[in-house]
C-alpha cells in the first residue's frame, strides 16, 4: 500500500444540493420480483429530537439474495430498474420512508447464511463521517445470523425492524444516535 484513503468530512447541512438527484422513495420499481415492503422510521438524536437533516442510503440484495453490482444494470434515473441502491433524506419530523422488495438471505465470506437485511448508511451535519448499520427484516433466520450473534444480546433489537400491527407489508425501524436504545453501528 502506498497511499492512504482520503479523510472524511461531514456532509454538512446543505447536501441536498449535490445529493438529491438520486433521492427516491421507491427502491424497487413496480414489477420487481419479490415481496414488496414499506420501511418507515425516524432518526433521533441524543436529546430524543428528530434529525431533520439526515440522509439515509441503502444497499441491498434482490429477492434472490443477489447484489446487482454489474455495469449492465447501472443506476439510471431515466430508466426504472431495481439496482438495490436507495437514497432517502429525512423530513421535518426526522422521518424516512421507502418501499422496496424484501431481500433474500446472503452468505458471509465463510459461506454462512445471513438473515434478510439492508445495509444502511446514515450521514448528517454533526457527523464528521458516516455511520453504518443494518436493518434486519422480521424472519426466522434472525436467531442464526452471524452478525446479529456478534452483537451484545441486549442491543440486537436495535437492528431488527418490526411489522406494523395493522400491516404485514410495512415495517418500522428507528435509528437512534444515542441513549438507551442507541442503534448498533458497525466498523466494516
Amino acid at each position: 500500500m502506498s497511499l492512504q484513503a482520503t479523510t472524511w468530512q461531514t456532509v454538512g447541512p446543505f447536501f441536498r444540493l449535490g445529493l438529491s438527484h438520486l433521492n427516491g422513495a421507491e427502491i424497487a420499481p413496480s414489477g420487481t420480483p419479490g415481496e414488496v415492503v414499506t420501511v418507515e422510521g425516524r432518526v433521533l438524536d441524543g436529546c430524543g429530537d428528530p434529525v431533520s437533516d439526515a440522509v439515509v442510503e441503502i444497499w441491498q440484495a434482490d429477492a434472490n439474495g443477489r447484489y446487482n453490482a454489474s455495469e449492465e444494470t447501472a443506476l439510471d434515473t431515466t430508466v426504472s430498474v431495481f439496482t438495490g441502491f436507495g437514497r432517502v433524506p429525512t423530513d421535518e419530523q426526522g422521518r424516512f420512508r421507502f418501499s422496496t422488495v424484501r431481500p433474500g438471505p446472503v452468505p458471509t465470506q465463510d459461506g454462512d447464511l445471513q438473515a434478510p437485511h439492508l445495509a444502511v448508511r446514515v450521514m448528517m451535519r454533526g457527523l464528521l463521517r458516516d455511520l453504518v448499520t443494518r436493518m434486519y427484516f422480521p424472519s426466522e433466520m434472525l436467531e442464526s445470523d452471524p452478525v446479529l450473534q456478534s452483537v451484545p444480546e441486549d442491543r440486537r433489537g436495535t437492528l431488527t425492524a418490526a411489522h406494523l400491527p395493522a400491516s404485514e407489508a410495512t415495517v418500522v425501524w428507528n435509528i437512534e444516535l444515542q441513549g438507551e436504545r442507541e442503534t448498533v453501528f458497525f466498523d466494516c
Binding site: D45, F85, L177, Q178, D187
Partner: peptide
C-alpha cells in the same frame, strides 16, 4: 448530540459490503 456513544462493532465484510451500485 449526534455522535454515538457506544464503540463501533466490527462487521466482517461480506458480499453486501464489497459490492456497490454502478
Amino acid at each position: 448530540s449526534r455522535a454515538p456513544r457506544h464503540p463501533l462493532i466490527s462487521l466482517p465484510q461480506s458480499l453486501g459490503e464489497i459490492t456497490g451500485p454502478r
